[in-house]
Design a protein around this nucleic acid. Structure first.
Length: 115
DNA sequence: GGCGTGACTATAC
DNA sequence: GGTATAGCCACGC
């Protein structure tokens, strides 16, 4: 594993605005690691304790939570998302409304959130 | 290097 | 809507 990669991944995840979500692939791309979506999952599974990272804002490309329904992690992510005002239907988030595929702009410069 | 596995993704049916 | 399949990258045996 590369610490520099992990650092960029955590940085990108930390930049996801509250009330929005992003996908593993999008985070990987924003971190300068296109195609390393699985690496993002690996990195998030090894987040150091004490680091307040909004890992719950990262879901699959189709909006589904990457954990099996009913699991502890699933329930926690579900609760955190709803607490931020992100509705989750059957373990899925509406990416059309809350998805943030263009994380790159958030890293290099904010854009208009309106649609 | 082959093989299986994993917080993934895109495409086809 | 769903399942199947192939591609993807990093890791451990």
């Amino acid at each position: 594993m590369n610490a520099a990669h992990y650092r960029r991944i955590y940085h990108a995840v930390a930049r996801i605005p509250s009330g929005t979500v992003s996908s593993y692939g999008a985070v990987a791309g924003a971190a300068g690691l296109p195609g390393r979506a699985r690496l993002v999952g690996k990195a998030l599974s090894e987040v150091p304790a004490g680091l307040d990272l909004p890992w719950h804002r990262v879901v699959r490309a189709d909006g589904r939570i990457a954990f099996p329904s009913g699991s502890d992690s699933f329930d926690q992510q579900l609760a955190r998302l709803r607490a931020e005002g992100v509705p989750v239907r059957r373990g899925r988030v509406d990416m059309k409304r809350h998805g943030r595929p263009n994380l790159d702009r958030l890293l290099w410069g904010p854009d208009q959130p309106g649609d």
